[in-house]
Computed example of a mutant assay.
Amino acid sequence: MSGPLDGKRILVLATNGFEQSELEVPRDRLKEAGARVDVVSPESGEIKGWDKKDWGRPVKVDRPLADAREADYDAIVVPGGQINPDLLRAEPAAVELVKAFYDAGKTVAAVCHGPWLLVEAGIAKGRRMTSYHSIRTDVVNAGARWEDAEVVTDNGLVTSRKPDDLEAFCAKIIEEVREGRHQRRAA
């Protein structure tokens, strides 16, 4: 059986402290749609999630961040949780990788606190975005036009508020990847 993302490759960028559902639901939905999905991390072996109020389950790392290249993938997904994007935005290689996807016109998706990494990569300015409400000010201060919506899509940039919105988030990622590269004007 074929899916809408057959032949596509998606990179999920995470480290210890990712919100469990915000990694697992997109990973699983994108695989179900036919994509090959790799979890990429600065860590090797496994990374451990955060499941609402305590540590969650480990997830296997498919490729180290040092070996990940934008050219090998069609899209990048950044799960949230407070810990994951905060640690990743302090990793120059993670920030550069997000920026490379954006500059190549590929789908860049982030949920919950994940937009912190988009802010750090300098790609929020002039874009329509959403996020978890507690980082709204950070997103606005980075120059984005923040919207209170479950999912906001702006020319291949997909953002979502919280775990309750994951099904709509995944549907938009699939739609944007199927559209292919996006021509982005300077903000």
Rank of each mutant, 00 (worst) to 15 (best):
G126N: 07
K99Q: 12
L97P: 00
R145K: 11
R36F: 06
P64S: 04
E120D: 11
E150M: 13
M1K: 08
S44V: 15
R36Y: 10
D62E: 00
K48S: 07
W146K: 08
G49K: 10
R161L: 00
L166V: 01
M129G: 07
E32K: 09
D72T: 07
T137E: 14
G49F: 12
L13H: 11
A124P: 04
A187G: 15
N155S: 15
V40N: 02
D6G: 10
T107S: 06
V61I: 11
L87I: 14
R36A: 09
T15N: 08
R57I: 13
R9N: 10
K162T: 14
E22N: 04
K60C: 05
P58I: 10
L5P: 01
V25P: 04
T15G: 03
K31L: 14
K106H: 02
E167N: 11
K48L: 12
E120K: 15
E176W: 10
S21E: 15
L157H: 02
S44M: 08
V12R: 01
A71T: 14
G180Y: 13
I174A: 03
A66D: 00
R178L: 12
V12I: 15
A66K: 04
G156M: 08
P64F: 00
P85Y: 11
W116S: 09
I47A: 03
V151A: 08
L30S: 02
W55S: 13
R136S: 09
G180H: 06
L23V: 13
K172H: 08
V59F: 05
R27S: 10
Y73N: 03
V158T: 04
S41T: 13
K125W: 05
R161P: 00
S160M: 09
R181D: 01
V78P: 02
E19L: 14
W146Q: 03
R69S: 12
K53A: 11
A35V: 12
W116E: 11
A187S: 15
A90C: 05
R36Q: 11
W50A: 06
G49N: 07
A142R: 08
